[in-house]
């Protein structure tokens, strides 16, 4: 056939993605919850993406795995960290990207890259899930709202209630007591988004952020956080149409640049 098709797969702590890449761009992709069996979800994700791309598995020349579960993908030819992959993916979508902010399920990262898309430095949150997707999930539950609605609703507030703790456990009880004090939920949401953003901002400031910034990972779907980041960085932030698949896209790009696997 002579088709030049490559794939990337990103097994994150909360969600997993696969991207099928042809010569002219993305042919298909899939996003699923990781759940308890990363190997199975890797398989399912891959099959779904292949089906959507209308590509047979045999036609894929090579596969790169990334993300937290990258070492558990038996059919991958190579594994590369999500740090390097997010940089690559973001650089592909927005070639002027010099800084990537990636907030995923359990990690937040700030990555700086050069004009070729290679990582020059990175910072990563520590042990706790403060200010990540998991954190937002817990807060959404405490605020009795859907995770997907947090962003939009927070934009309805004129100001945010300051949140002092970023520890998931402490912040949850703080949110609950703020609700009990009768604070508006939208304002609490906005406060949470501002707190998360300023945490990322501080992590980023240390790395000497350069223009342009691209925001990846599931949390980039939250417009409230995008807005708050733009205010802090005093510049617009690129958000891909599908921010969750940037890591898998980067992985596929690495697969493509390495060429077909040796068999």
């Amino acid at each position: 056939m002579g088709k030049r098709i490559y794939a990337g797969i990103d097994i994150g702590s909360l969600s997993s993605e696969a991207v099928i890449l042809g010569e002219n761009g993305i042919l298909g992709y899939s996003v699923r919850n990781t759940g308890a069996d990363p190997q199975r979800v890797a398989q399912e994700c891959m099959e779904e993406a292949l089906a959507r791309a209308n590509v047979a598995k045999e036609d894929v020349l090579s596969i790169v795995a990334t993300g937290y579960g990258r070492i558990r993908v038996p059919f991958a030819d190579r594994e590369i960290t999500e740090i390097t992959c997010h940089a690559k993916g973001a650089h592909f979508l927005f070639p002027e990207t010099r800084t990537v902010i990636d907030i995923g399920g359990q990690d937040s990262k700030v990555i700086t890259l050069d004009e070729r898309g290679a990582v020059t430095d990175f910072a990563m949150n520590d042990r706790c899930a403060a200010g990540t997707g998991r954190f937002l999930e817990v807060m959404a539950t405490a605020l009795e709202t859907k995770l997907s609605e947090l962003g939009q609703r927070s934009l309805e507030a004129k100001k945010g209630v300051p949140i002092s703790s970023m520890c998931t456990v402490f912040a949850e009880s703080e949110v609950i007591s703020l609700i009990a004090e009768g604070k508006r939920r939208e304002e609490i949401m906005r406060g949470l988004h501002e707190a998360i953003s300023s945490r990322v901002y501080r992590m980023a400031k240390k790395l000497r952020v350069k223009k342009e910034i691209t925001f990846t990972g599931g949390v980039a779907k939250n417009q409230g956080i995008v807005k708050a980041l733009e205010v802090l960085f005093k510049m617009p932030v690129n958000v891909p149409d599908e921010p969750q698949i940037v890591g898998a896209l980067g992985a596929a790009l690495y697969a493509r640049s390495a060429g077909p696997r040796a068999r």
Binding site: E79, I80, I83, T84, M124
Partner: peptide, 12 residues
Amino acid sequence: QTRTRLEALIEM
């Protein structure tokens, strides 16, 4: 996390 950091260092 440890693996990710170490591998990212090597990739750099």
